[in-house]
Amino acid sequence: MLEDIEANLALVSRPGIISQVLENLVVNSLNHGFEPGQPGRIELKARRFDANQICITVSDNGSGIPTEMQKNLFEPFVTSGRGKGNIGLGLYMVNQWVSKLLAGKLSFVSEINTSNEFTTQFTVLLPINSEIKPT
């Protein structure tokens, strides 16, 4: 896994939830983007997007997300790994955490891999200084 984190980047937010978001995105790449034993790359980047936001991306050069799944990807129970024990709540939860708890936005682009380049990229935009309210 490659990391490219902008120097002196600061974020006031909910670190536990951000770690869950990143863990889920990386695990999704591993479980859905690559066959067991298949070599591949996952890249994590973080940079300032503008004066008020940080952009975090998780990209992989796996197989890509099937076109027919992309429209409903953030809905509950959508998975390409049902036969592998997945139930399809991971990206639904990630989207809920990002939008509801972190006041951010989650998006993705994905193409079927034909040239070993990055095929799927999830982008998380977060406010640099979110007001943290007790839950």
Rank of each mutant, 00 (worst) to 15 (best):
D60N: 15
V94T: 11
N61D: 10
I56G: 04
R41A: 14
W97L: 15
L30D: 01
Q53D: 11
L73N: 02
V124I: 10
E35D: 13
L30P: 03
K84H: 07
N31F: 09
R82Q: 15
G88L: 05
K105D: 07
V21F: 04
G104L: 05
S80F: 09
K84R: 14
M69G: 07
A46L: 03
E75T: 10
V58A: 01
C55P: 01
N116H: 08
M69E: 12
F49M: 09
G40N: 05
V124D: 01
R41Y: 06
R41N: 10
R47P: 02
M93H: 04
I65N: 03
M93W: 04
S110L: 03
S99N: 15
F108P: 04
P39S: 11
G16V: 11
S19A: 14
F118H: 07
Q70D: 01
G88P: 05
G62R: 02
T120N: 01
K105N: 15
Q20D: 12
D50E: 07
S115W: 02
G16L: 13
G83E: 15
G83I: 05
S19H: 12
G104C: 11
I18K: 00
G40C: 01
G104Y: 14
N61K: 00
A46M: 12
V124Q: 06
P76H: 05
G33F: 02
V124P: 05
S80T: 14
L106V: 08
V27W: 01
N113S: 10
S80E: 06
I54Q: 07
S63L: 08
Q38G: 06
I87Q: 09
C55R: 15
A46H: 11
Q20I: 06
Q38D: 06
M93L: 11
K84G: 03
P76R: 09
Q121Y: 00
V27L: 09
M93A: 06
V124Y: 08
L102M: 15
N31D: 14
Q70A: 07
R47H: 03
N31Y: 13
V98W: 05
Y92W: 14
G90P: 06
S110W: 01
L91K: 10
Q70L: 10
A46N: 13
T120R: 00
K100I: 07
L25F: 03
I42V: 14
L22R: 03
A51E: 13
K45W: 09
S63K: 08
P66S: 03
V124M: 03
F122C: 05
K71R: 13
V109Q: 13
I56V: 13
V78M: 11
L73K: 09
L44S: 02
F49R: 13
A103D: 14
N72H: 13
G33M: 00
G81P: 07
S80G: 15
Q121N: 14
G81M: 10
Q70V: 02
I87E: 11
N31E: 10
Q53R: 14
